[in-house]
Design a protein around this nucleic acid. Structure first.
Length: 377
RNA sequence: GGGGAGGUAGCGAAGUGGCUAAACGCGGCUGACUGUAACUCAGCUCUCUCCGAGUUCGGCAGUUCGAAUCUGCCCCUCCCCA
């Protein structure tokens, strides 16, 4: 186990729990939602803005930084924290998800993945060792095993061999990991197959990681299936281990995750839909581009305390987004992230007060009323 | 006054006898987005009693089986020279 990293569970309420992640860049409370900053920046936002919204861990992506500017540059800059001037904890994804999203032009072998750069089409090769070494150079507090994230649905035969390969890759990555200041997570795969999920989790636990991620969710499956995937994985993971549900950022899935003992969530959803003009609000989803907001001089979300809601009207943001102004994307990104971060604060309070089940039920009722229950955000 | 160019759907702009309600772009409207190839993508955008029909391509009158496309006249715009 890593001496520079410690997960402390502070309170439990059923399977839901609050905790503190102690890292070389300070402590953060869990359950936590982590904004995604793929290219060492949360698109349109400054580190100051992230801090003001009470962001904790921020993600960056190994694949992207490896291609540009090159992980050697990040290393020479003094690591990603110094490079992007964010002094709170960070996490890098391994590039495994890109293996999934580049499905059209990649070739998976035992050694690793051959694919073409999305920038210039040049041939690239990523392996567990290369990914871990790159992540060591980037220097985030949390790093991920290089995994394959199969799409949904995948045949059982495919998933069986994929899970085995990802387990072998996890072992190779663990052996390659050299930086004691970085917590390395194993990633549970296995699709919707219970025995494969359980097997994947069990084998990772045997290898012993600093934390465990649940991958292969939100890749096309329906919600009940996603929740079953969580159930299968969590069933084989130690109670005390920190658990991370990768790529999930809708309210319903976060609530279901927390209810199962998940501690960490990340998602591009709030920032992406913000750039595209959609707001998550206490009243449900708002597409600010709609003509009806052109003369709506009320706050973005009357119940929100974010910078955008404190200062600007829907009419103004409507105008900015219609005009494709960066400031509009920034304001909406600030709002959506703060909305989810605040949501996590409420979840933590509910857990600490032993009323998470009621909180969760009420949140689902609210989603029903806002007519977003079918989507979850 | 002389010479030249041109008027196509909200705007710009293709089309120069049938396959054209009319390419494409913009604008407009709506939707999507879950470990970010995503300031992206998709649909709709003449009218209606809208799974079928009706009116269109400056105007009017013609030629033709058939015209936004050809002919005549008229109206309007822009450019150059006086």
């Amino acid at each position: 186990m890593n001496p520079n990293f410690h997960f402390e569970i502070t309170h439990t309420d059923g399977k839901a729990r609050t905790g503190i992640l102690h890292t070389p860049h300070g402590d953060v409370e869990t359950p936590i939602f982590m904004p995604v900053g793929t290219q060492a920046t949360v698109k349109f936002l400054s580190p100051e803005e992230l801090k003001e919204m009470n962001a904790g861990i921020v993600l960056a992506n190994t694949y992207h930084l490896w291609l540009r500017p090159g992980t050697d540059i990040v290393k020479r800059a003094g690591g990603v924290h110094e490079f992007m001037q964010y002094d709170r904890p960070m996490l890098t994804d391994s590039g495994g998800f890109q293996v999934f999203s580049f499905a059209d032009n990649r070739k998976i072998t035992e050694e690793g993945v051959h694919f073409r750069s999305h920038i210039d089409g040049s041939p690239c090769f990523m392996s567990p060792e290369i990914s871990i070494e790159a992540q060591n150079d980037i220097g985030a507090d949390f790093i991920m095993s290089f995994d394959e994230c199969p799409g949904y649905p995948s045949t059982r035969e495919y998933m069986e061999q994929s899970v085995e390969r990802t387990l072998r890759w996890a072992k190779r990555g663990k052996d390659a990991h050299k930086n004691p200041n970085q917590a390395l997570f194993g990633i549970v795969q296995g699709g919707e197959y219970e025995d494969l999920r359980r097997h994947s989790a069990r084998e990772l636990v045997k290898m012993g990681f600093d934390g465990y991620s649940i991958g292969g969710t939100s890749v096309g499956e329906d919600k009940p299936t996603m929740y079953r995937m969580m159930d299968y994985a969590v069933a084989e993971l130690p109670e005390e281990a920190v658990k991370y549900l990768m790529g999930v950022g809708s309210k319903d899935a976060i609530l279901e995750g927390v209810a199962r003992g998940i501690d960490m969530f990340d998602c591009v959803l709030p920032t992406r839909i913000a750039r595209h003009g959609t707001l998550m609000t206490s009243q449900g989803r708002v597409n600010i581009k709609n003509a009806k907001y052109a003369d709506d001089f009320t706050p973005i979300d009357p119940e929100c305390d974010c910078y955008a809601c404190r200062h600007y009207t829907r009419a103004y943001v409507h105008h900015l987004i219609k005009e494709n102004e960066g400031f509009g994307m920034r304001l909406l990104s600030i709002h959506n992230l703060r909305f989810l971060i605040h949501f996590m604060e409420e979840i933590r309070s509910a857990i600490k007060e032993d009323r998470f089940a009621e909180f969760k039920a009420e949140e689902f009722r609210k989603m029903e009323r806002a007519n977003i229950a079918h989507r979850g955000f």
